[in-house]
């Protein structure tokens, strides 16, 4: 189509990577061209009349007379739009129903959103902060939020759904091509660029709504299976701890090279006694670490203001995962 060359779909919309995308894009472009026609007609008429009947010597406005033609024209443009709007509404609603009802054979992936990270838990019980999905398979996400509102948004799939604390929401899609797409949080959820003392952090450590982005990796079914297999915990405990350190966003605040961050570093602190904010001393042993993970406010190291900004990991980390993190901390000797 020649017209389409003027404003190609690919300029207005991202690549179509899900089964919904072609239908939604089609409807989008229909509305687009409908709008172009109306806009050109209205503005064209406006400019034409304005120039033709411009104020000039020898031209006077024609006295208004009641005309049956105008009455009819008015009725026409009051009623006619309904016949354009109805099909639009209908098609939009049909598309929405498709988005709402997931097929029974969908692979279910559990999604947890929190300030400011994504966690995707697969049927095998393992989780990641990048979403892997198999191509040409129906995928249903069961989503919840741990704190405030978030929204799951993948432009390439044309899907979006809010994550509401206190309830589950779900969304489904069927990816149609292998590749990679961006995943955004689309519901404003705050942000942080200062530490607890009010001092500004380096820009690289700014965290917030805008940084709650991730990737969707659309694998071939074989690659997806392999990905799931490789997730199963293998290898030394401390390596799994390191993976969790990255995946569970500990890395956002705790450094492992001894430098000072928003929270205490993990390097060379295990097993030693530290001064607490309330003046007492406490030894960072297994119980200390476990308690701090589950109840971050229980003990706070001196120099870090209370209450802590760290979310509780109660229910988020399994016991064996806490063990792995402890093992990882132990390995970070000075």
């Amino acid at each position: 189509m020649k017209l389409a060359m003027l404003a190609p779909t690919s300029f207005q919309l991202p690549e179509a990577m899900s089964s919904f995308a072609p239908t939604i894009d089609d409807l989008y472009m229909k509305i687009y061209w409908l709008s172009v026609v109306f806009f050109v007609a209205i503005v064209g008429a406006m400019v034409y009349f304005a120039v033709k009947y411009r104020k000039r010597a020898g031209h006077k406005a024609e006295a208004a007379t009641h005309s049956v033609f105008m009455d009819r024209l008015e009725v026409f443009w009051t009623v006619a739009p309904i016949f354009i709007l109805l099909p639009l509404f209908h098609e939009g609603f049909r598309g929405y129903m498709d988005l709402s009802v997931a097929p029974a054979d969908s692979i279910e992936i559990r999604v947890r959103g929190a300030q400011w990270r994504w966690e995707f838990e697969y049927p095998n019980g393992e989780s990641d902060n990048v979403l892997h999905v198999p191509v040409n398979k129906n995928v249903k996400l069961i989503m919840s939020s741990e704190d405030v509102l978030h929204a799951f948004f993948v432009p390439e799939f044309r899907v979006k759904k809010d994550l509401v604390p206190g309830m589950y929401s779900s969304v489904w899609f069927r990816p149609t091509v292998t590749g990679e797409a961006d995943l955004f949080c689309a519901e404003y959820c705050g942000g942080k660029s200062k530490d607890n003392t009010g001092a500004e952090l380096p820009p690289a450590q700014f965290n917030g709504h805008w940084s709650m982005i991730s990737k969707v990796k659309i694998d071939t079914p074989e690659a997806f299976d392999k990905y799931l297999d490789n997730m199963a915990p293998v290898g030394p405990l401390e390596e799994r701890g390191r993976a969790l350190y990255l995946k569970k966003a500990c890395v956002g605040c705790h450094t492992i090279d001894g430098s000072k961050g928003v929270a205490p570093t993990w390097k060379g602190v295990f097993g030693k006694s530290h001064k607490m904010a309330d003046g007492t001393d406490a030894v960072m042993d297994e119980n200390y670490v476990r308690e701090s993970i589950l109840n971050p406010n229980a003990k706070i190291v001196a120099g870090y203001t209370a209450p802590s900004v760290m979310p509780t990991y109660q229910g988020t980390l399994k016991e064996k995962e806490i063990d792995a993190i402890i093992a990882f901390m132990k390995s970070l000797k000075e």
């Binding site: 919904f20 239908t23 939604i24 409807l27 989008y28 509305i31 687009y32 409908l34 709008s35 109306f38 806009f39 709007l85 639009l88 509404f89 098609e91 939009g92 609603f93 049909r94 598309g95 929405y96 498709d98 988005l99 929204a151 948004f153 432009p155 044309r158 899907v159 979006k160 689309a186 519901e187």
Partner: peptide, 20 residues
């Protein structure tokens, strides 16, 4: 323009993509 782009947002399936 403001009104016509409202059509995109009133159309449910398209709004899901454009919302927020």
């Amino acid at each position: 323009i403001g009104g016509l782009t409202g059509l995109f947002l009133g159309t449910l399936s398209v709004d899901v993509h454009l919302h927020d």
